[in-house]
């Protein structure tokens, strides 16, 4: 936040970051042209760039981006809603949380990747199996954060609202939900990232569309350029999603004081 007030420093940083990128790409290109790296296994930046440009020019990549976005969005929304709902229920009902505690722990400890084939069997090769897979990843992050958020509400804040005449519903709406939202938002980057991981890994394991499919397809043909091109598109996609999340976060948390770390910087 502070860095906005010193544009020179900001530009310096950006320039350095760009220089690092140029240097790495140039090194890769040169190494590949001089045959220090076998182009069959490592491809080269110019070929990758050409492939990406062709994908966009022919428009064949858009359907994959669309499918992956849709899966990510759905996995995020469904996972978050379930996480918030169950998180609230557990936080407000100690009995419920005591009974289900071991199940939650086991389910969370299980490596979710083993579920992917089962979801493919249950939900087919379409987007549903990827959404289901993403949901299992997103759910737990949101669930734990909601649970924590509700449990950590200051007693005095609750009592103050009660003294001011809040009903249980008022407490939920004006105190508990916003308080949990802070925690949920703080994990927004993680949960959106996990939704994306769910989508791409699901596609990679079996699908007919999506960025994960694109990469898997190229890999099956030993087309290294295609793999790297897929990675570049995926990286660009992740960057855009992350920027969107950051702007949503900034808007929703505008009431928050800048963190001490940022102040110190």
């Amino acid at each position: 936040m502070r860095s906005g007030s010193v544009p020179e420093a900001r530009w310096g940083l950006r320039a350095t970051q760009a220089a690092v990128f140029v240097l790495l790409v140039a090194a890769w290109e040169v190494a590949s042209r001089l045959r220090w790296l076998d182009p069959f296994f490592f491809s080269r930046p110019s070929s990758v760039a050409e492939r990406v440009a062709r994908w966009f020019a022919s428009g064949e990549v858009y359907v994959h981006i669309y499918v992956t976005s849709l899966e990510t969005l759905l996995a995020f929304l469904v996972g978050s809603l379930l996480g918030v709902g169950v998180g609230f229920a557990f936080a407000l009902s100690p009995a419920l949380s005591r009974v289900f505690d071991p199940y939650v722990k086991v389910a969370n400890a299980m490596p979710r990747i083993v579920l992917a084939p089962i979801f493919t069997l249950w939900f087919g090769l379409g987007i549903l199996s990827k959404v289901a897979f993403g949901v299992t990843l997103v759910f737990f992050v949101v669930f734990f954060n909601t649970y924590q958020g509700v449990r950590e509400v200051d007693r005095n804040v609750l009592n103050n609202a009660r003294m001011l005449g809040a009903t249980d519903r008022d407490l939920l709406r004006h105190v508990l939900l916003p308080s949990a939202l802070v925690w949920i938002l703080s994990s927004l980057h993680t949960s959106v990232g996990l939704a994306l991981v769910g989508a791409v890994v699901g596609e990679y394991l079996g699908s007919a569309r999506g960025l994960g499919y694109l990469i898997h397809q190229a890999e099956a043909l030993f087309d290294t350029t295609g793999v790297f091109a897929g990675l570049v598109v995926l990286a660009g996609f992740v960057l855009v999603v992350d920027l969107l999340v950051s702007s949503v976060e900034r808007h929703l948390l505008r009431w928050k004081p800048p963190s001490h770390v940022e102040e110190a910087l």
Binding site: V157, N160, A161, M163, V175, P178, W255
Partner: peptide
């Protein structure tokens, strides 16, 4: 009755 607490009890998001 209303109750003025010793602690800060304002809602930070309002």
């Amino acid at each position: 009755a209303s109750y003025l607490f010793q602690q800060d009890v304002l809602l930070p998001w309002k």
